[in-house]
């Protein structure tokens, strides 16, 4: 029977209350959201907080809001809500693609986007999604809000720039015209973490060329950041199979996978290549079909 070591528990009834509790109990206190990463870690003694501050009652952190050029998502928004949201899928199909493959329906009923990003596991699918969408994160602390770009959120595996006395409150995705996106993942079975996964977002220029692109890879040692050489190769070019192949080749070269029970290094590199081609192809196809539907 796996049970966490003893700790104290407090339930926050507002964001300010949560911040106050974190300040009061110091660095040995931890926020708990869905608990689906933290509780398993506590059972294994990989995390041993003295206080858990439960933020599940903070319903103002659970929202999806269109706000001008941004889609704002509360940190406590559950995977299931992101999966089912038509607003999210309309702007960013990559999110639904990814959510379909994250864990299983029961975990998705509890796990949150804020918990996923703060967990900073290198295999976290939503981290790649947020890199690809160039997300901004709103973090609240004793001195108010600060905003950091996604590429500055993670300090390394399982480490973030969210300080012990701060809370991630919101994820903001910029809405861009003539853009679409896709995500695809290879997993051994439902509920497994990625053997490898790839995500991409493309923006079309008026001449049919790919004006802008981001490509992200999960679980292959790119540490969540984007595949810059592949992006440079694609930017400004007309979409074609040859172009996707070139991007795949560069992405596979630039990643740094390690062999584990999910596969060999060579297999994962092969996946990085093939999955990168697929997401680029898919994102462009989606753009074409919405352009046709719109004309």
């Amino acid at each position: 029977m796996q049970i966490p070591a003893a700790f104290e528990y407090a339930r926050a009834d507002s964001i300010d209350h949560a911040l106050q509790l974190l300040a009061e109990h110091g660095p040995e206190s931890r926020v708990i959201a869905g608990g689906h990463s933290l509780l398993p870690m506590m059972k294994l003694r990989l995390a041993n907080p003295e206080w858990l501050i439960d933020i599940n009652d903070l319903t103002d952190l659970e929202h999806i809001t269109e706000d001008g050029d941004w889609l704002r998502v509360g940190a406590l928004t559950r995977h299931v809500t992101l999966l089912e949201s038509d607003i999210v899928a309309g702007h960013f199909p990559i999110v639904r693609d990814a959510e379909k493959t994250i864990a299983d329906p029961l975990v998705r009923n509890r796990g949150t986007i804020g918990g996923s990003l703060c967990q900073a596991d290198p295999a976290e699918d939503l981290s790649t999604v947020c890199h690809v969408l160039r997300a901004e994160l709103v973090i609240r602390g004793p001195n108010g809000d600060r905003t950091v770009p996604m590429k500055e959120l993670h300090r390394g595996p399982y480490e973030t720039t969210v300080e012990p006395n701060e809370i991630l409150t919101e994820i903001r995705w910029p809405i861009r015209a003539r853009s679409s996106s896709a995500y695809t993942k290879v997993e051994r079975r439902v509920g497994d973490w990625a053997t490898a996964a790839s995500g991409a977002s493309v923006t079309m220029g008026s001449g049919g060329q790919i004006e802008d692109v981001t490509i992200g890879l999960t679980a292959v040692g790119l540490d969540g950041s984007t595949a810059t050489r592949a992006q440079d190769a694609v930017r400004g070019q007309q979409p074609s199979e040859e172009l996707y192949a070139e991007a795949g080749r560069l992405a596979a070269e630039d990643c740094n996978p390690v062999e584990d029970q999910r596969g060999t290094e060579a297999y994962k590199r092969h996946l990085a290549d093939e999955l990168t081609r697929r997401v680029l192809r898919k994102a462009v196809e989606r753009l074409m079909s919405t352009a046709e539907a719109g004309s």
Binding site: M1, Q2, Y9, R11, I32, G35, H36, L39, P40, K43, L52, D54, N56, D104, P105, L106, V107, N109, R110, G191
Partner: peptide, 28 residues
């Protein structure tokens, strides 16, 4: 015990959850 098998599933406010990965105090 590791949120993988789903044997411990119960409904919380009508939604299926793995009860080995929810603290009783959180279900309060």
């Amino acid at each position: 015990d590791t949120s993988n098998c789903g044997l411990c599933t119960v409904l919380m406010d009508g939604v299926p959850v793995k009860s080995c990965t929810v603290l009783a105090v959180m279900a309060s």
